[in-house]
């Protein structure tokens, strides 16, 4: 409980720092103040990758009989939900950056298209979880989809290398020595990576606990309903 609070406090502090540092970045010759979005957009995309990676890892652990635990299914579900949130924010912030710099809100560029595809795939993953079924059947079906869906993540990440795109190169590559990105911008982006990752971990822990409690309640309610139906049948 205390560790969750500490994690939450660290997430809030680093996020506040990212917003302050990002908004305080100087205007640049090419992008004017639009470059201030560098503190948010790449870290949001990175966290979406992490979230879908964790969904895949938890799904694989559920699929292996020796490591199969309901907790892996709860983690996979919580992480996919967070991944959808971060992907949605990546698309919105990217669109807000693209409009003044590219002149369009949206274009069918390889990176943008694969990001939209990633969002649709994981929305589908979350939607299929609400299909009425037994908990174990739902968990098994979700684990198979969760383990397969992650294929879209490396395709999305490498899209800017594999195809001619309007989108700039990989942001992580700009952290290498010799990069043209100024130190202030790198610092803001790095703090953004830390802040978004901490926020993700904190929210993942809380959401997983909520999902586990809901699953437990659902199982108890089902057991109670079956017992009540049996009593009715005996009374008749």
């Amino acid at each position: 409980m205390r560790s969750i609070r500490v994690l939450g406090a660290l997430a809030v502090v680093t996020l506040t720092g990212t917003f302050a540092l990002g908004l305080g970045l100087p205007a640049t010759f090419e992008q004017r103040t639009y470059s201030r979005m560098v503190a948010l957009h790449p870290p949001l995309a990175w966290t979406a990758y992490v979230a879908f990676g964790i969904t895949a890892a938890a799904s694989i652990l559920y699929l292996i009989p020796r490591t199969r635990r309901p907790r892996w299914d709860a983690i996979a579900s919580a992480s996919a939900e967070l991944g959808v949130l971060f992907t949605g924010l990546t698309l919105i912030t990217g669109s807000l950056w693209g409009r003044p710099t590219w002149g369009v809100w949206w274009t069918w560029d390889a990176r943008l298209t694969t990001t939209a595809l990633m969002l649709v795939i994981y929305l589908g993953y979350l939607a299929q979880r609400s299909i009425a079924d037994t908990a174990s059947a739902r968990a098994m079906r979700s684990a198979i989809i969760g383990a397969m869906a992650v294929v879209v993540v490396p395709i999305n990440h490498m899209a800017v290398e594999w195809w001619r795109t309007l989108h700039q190169g990989r942001s992580l590559a700009s952290l290498k020595p010799g990069s043209t990105l100024d130190g202030d911008f790198i610092a803001a982006m790095l703090l953004g990576f830390v802040a978004m990752t901490l926020s993700y971990v904190w929210l993942l822990v809380l959401r997983t606990k909520v999902i586990e409690a809901d699953n437990e309640l659902e199982a108890h309610a089902l057991t109670a309903a079956i017992a009540a139906r049996r009593r009715e049948a005996v009374a008749q």
Partner: peptide, 9 residues
């Protein structure tokens, strides 16, 4: 655009 980006996030 920058304000909207930060506000939405």
């Amino acid at each position: 655009y920058v304000v909207a980006c930060y506000a939405v996030t």
